[in-house]
Design a protein around this nucleic acid. Structure first.
Lengths: 185, 185
DNA sequence: GTCTATAGATAGATAGAC
DNA sequence: GTCTATCTATCTATAGAC
């Protein structure tokens, strides 16, 4: 489960919740274990009982968004029709952003997160695969701009105060429409 | 000048250039003075001769993008016609992003930069003024989404590898058109 | 699960020589 | 303008008590 309220793992989840908030506000590099500990009201040592390193906390936070994202890529790549592919990607991206608003923002936007992901063979090609799916080889300059703007825009959706009050069911159709329009010219 | 090649201030400019590169890649908080010094090939002490603190380096890097941005806001706010305002903002934003590609990205995207700017009375209202100019009071949910996506998209334009080879004159008309389309529907 | 205490590394920053 | 050397604070991480 994403947010278990069971006593088993409750302390772990408190660490993850506090870390995600702080990562969004201060960035991964700008967040120390002391800050996380202070927010929960424990000492740093208590956190090291749950996670061996700060990177491990980050990895745990990115796990679900990344799994969703990879699922979207696979699903789209299995689609034969080239035009259908873009639709699958757009719908999948929107769903992923909504399901993990702050998580996807950290994942796609934070320098510390982006750098950490480049260490992984699996994930360093994600951006590349996305580009292939939405752009292909011979993309026009305008298409490239549209792609970049869309991806950048999605990184902001999950954390912008302007959209905080809007729930998933409200945002989903709007985002799909806006995203499709941005891509399709 | 933005990049003086004169001997006077050359060392200072080397610090700024190296810092901006590192800030984009590692984030402001993820960049140490040691990293900046290593990239230039000097010691930390040499940097402290140019800047008294790391914050001062950041402030110097954001100075021009911020001045441009404030200029755009003022210019737009002096425009009577409400519809014309959006055009002035879009054109101004695009020009600012192109004139300071990496600078505006750090400015708008980096958590360390965003937090530093919130300390300033002047700049903590920039996002608010932008929202007023482009959205106004009674904006629809869809309009709000479009606003957020556009702003997020622009933060990515200056640093995306996908657009790195495209020069300003190529990007400007495309960006204006895409930005207008995102907003006006 | 959480604590105190601490080790070891690195951060930002300064003093003073050249 | 740049160096060596150094200070202090903070960081990540670990050891061992409760």
């Amino acid at each position: 489960m994403a947010t278990p309220s069971s006593p088993r793992g409750a302390a772990r989840q408190r660490v993850l919740d506090a870390s995600l908030e702080l990562f969004v506000e201060h960035g991964v590099s700008g967040t120390s274990l002391q800050m996380i500990a202070d927010r929960i009201g424990v000492t740093k040592a208590a956190i090291y009982f749950q996670f061996r390193t700060k990177e491990e906390i980050l990895a745990a936070l990115l796990e679900e968004p990344l799994r969703d994202l990879l699922g979207v890529l696979e699903q789209a790549e299995n689609e034969r029709d080239r035009a259908r592919r873009a639709d699958v990607v757009v719908e999948g991206l929107v769903d992923t952003v909504l399901a993990h608003r702050r998580g996807t923002s950290v994942l796609m936007r934070d320098p510390g997160s982006v750098l950490a992901l480049k260490q992984s063979e699996t994930y360093q090609r994600v951006a590349e695969r996305l580009r292939e799916l939405l752009l292909g080889a011979g993309a026009t300059q305008e298409a490239r701009v549209r792609f970049v703007v869309l991806m950048g825009g999605l990184t902001q959706v999950g954390v912008s105060p302007v959209l905080r009050e809007l729930d998933d069911d409200t945002l989903r159709p709007i985002l799909r429409q806006v995203a499709s329009q941005i891509l399709e010219r």
